[in-house]
Nucleic acid binder design. Structure first.
Lengths: 140, 140
DNA sequence: CAAGTGCCTAAACTTAACTTTAGGTTAAAG
DNA sequence: CTTTAACCTAAAGTTAAGTTTAGGCACTTG
C-alpha cells in the first residue's frame, strides 16, 4: 500500500502565509506555483513542494522582484538542470540589488533617526526655530 | 540692493535627482513641494528649500511611504510648530517600520546568499540533484 | 524671421498587483 | 433535504504612481 502525501487547502495556506485566497489563486493562474494540482472536484491541494514555492515567492517579492520575473524563475525550475546557469545568474544579480537596497535603506534610516532627534528636541523647545539653526549643519 | 537667491529650473532638478520632468510636476501638483514658485512666465523656479523638500520626498519614498502620506507631512510643515507632535510621531513610527523592513531584507538576503551557494555548487556538479540532498537541511 | 529648445497645462492612458463581483459546485451538519 | 462553509471560475474593477499626448508659450540662435 502507498503512503499518502500530506497536502493543504488554499485556506490553510492563506492562513499560513497571511495572503488572501484570491492572491494565491492569482499566483497560481500566473504560473508562480509549479505542479500545483487539484483533486477530482477541481479543488487545489498544496504539497510541501508547493509551500516551498510560496516561500520562495515571498522571498523574491521581498527582494523587489516583479511577478513576471518570479514566474520566469519558476518556469526555469521546471526546465531542470538546463537552466542552472540562468538561475545562478539571477540570484547573483538579485544579491547585488538587495545589497544596494539595504544600503539605501540604511541611509534612509539614518536620516529618519536624525529627524527623530530633531523633532524630539523641537518638542522640548516647543518650537522648531532653535533646533533648525543648531542641527542643520550636521545633518546626515 | 537685495541679494538674488539662486534657483534651479525643473530640468536641472530632474537631472540632479534622476527624476523625470512629469514626475516632478506630478509631485508639485500633489502638493509635495511646499512654496514652489513660478516666475512671471509661469515657469517653476526651485529654491534650496524646494530642493530640500525633494530630498525629504526621496527619503520618505525610500522608506516605503505613499505619496498621500508624504503630502500630509508636507502640509504639516506648513502648519508650523502646531504640528510638531504629529511630525515627531510620524518619524517614530516610520523608524520602527523601516527597521522592520531592514530585518526582513536581511532575511531575504540570507536566503539569496544560500541560493547563490546552492546554485554555485549545482553548476559545478552540473546538476541540482546532489546539492539538493546535501544542502536542504541547513537552509536558512 | 524661422527653427529649435525648454518650459507649461489638462486630460487621457498605462502598468502592476491585486480585489471584487457574480454565479456555481461539493460536502458536511442540523 | 436544506442550509452553511469552503472551495471554484471568469471577468470586471481598483489603486498607486507615474507616463503620454496634444497643444501652446517664450527665448535665442542661424
Amino acid at each position: 500500500m502507498q503512503e499518502m502525501m500530506t497536502t493543504y487547502s488554499i485556506g490553510e495556506v492563506a492562513e499560513k502565509f497571511g495572503l488572501s485566497l484570491p492572491t494565491i489563486r492569482y499566483y497560481d493562474k500566473e504560473g508562480l506555483i509549479p505542479n500545483l494540482n487539484k483533486n477530482e472536484a477541481g479543488v487545489r491541494r498544496f504539497t510541501d513542494d508547493n509551500i516551498g514555492s510560496l516561500q520562495m515567492i515571498e522571498c523574491l517579492k521581498n527582494a523587489g522582484m516583479p511577478i513576471r520575473d518570479i514566474k520566469q524563475f519558476m518556469q526555469w525550475t521546471l526546465e531542470g538542470d538546463a537552466s542552472l546557469e540562468k538561475r545562478y545568474q539571477m540570484f547573483q544579480e538579485l544579491r547585488v540589488s538587495v545589497m544596494k537596497q539595504m544600503e539605501a535603506m540604511q541611509n534612509t534610516l539614518n536620516t529618519i533617526d536624525f529627524k527623530c532627534k530633531y523633532y524630539g528636541q523641537a518638542k522640548v523647545d516647543g518650537t522648531e526655530k532653535y533646533v533648525k539653526n543648531e542641527m542643520h549643519l550636521d545633518r546626515p
